[in-house]
């Protein structure tokens, strides 16, 4: 697991403390019952703070899984 993925797992774990690492890597809005709108806002806030990125309003609806958030962060951190 690379450093970025490790940090992202930690972000997800802070918002969804009941999930283990495997569940986090496979997490999505559909598979995690607790991933409601409030949790989504908290998750994105934690990710923004951790990686120093600003998620645009139009990007928010697309960040519905761990892999989607990971791709977003990889793209914007390396930019």
């Amino acid at each position: 697991m690379d450093n970025l993925e490790h940090r992202l797992v930690r972000c997800f774990s802070s918002v969804f403390p009941g999930l283990n690492e495997d569940q986090i890597r496979n997490a999505s809005v559909d598979s995690v019952p607790d991933w409601h709108s409030l949790a989504s806002v908290t998750l994105i806030s934690v990710v923004q703070e951790e990686f120093g990125v600003q998620v645009g309003l139009t990007d928010l609806p697309n960040l519905v899984s761990f892999s989607a958030v990971q791709n977003y962060v990889q793209h914007h951190v390396t930019d």
């Binding site: 802070s14 403390p17 908290t42 934690v46 703070e49």
Partner: peptide, 12 residues
């Protein structure tokens, strides 16, 4: 305090 730390402390 960062939000990620606050979440951990609040759930301690």
């Amino acid at each position: 305090m960062k939000l990620i730390d606050a979440l951990a402390v609040a759930r301690r």
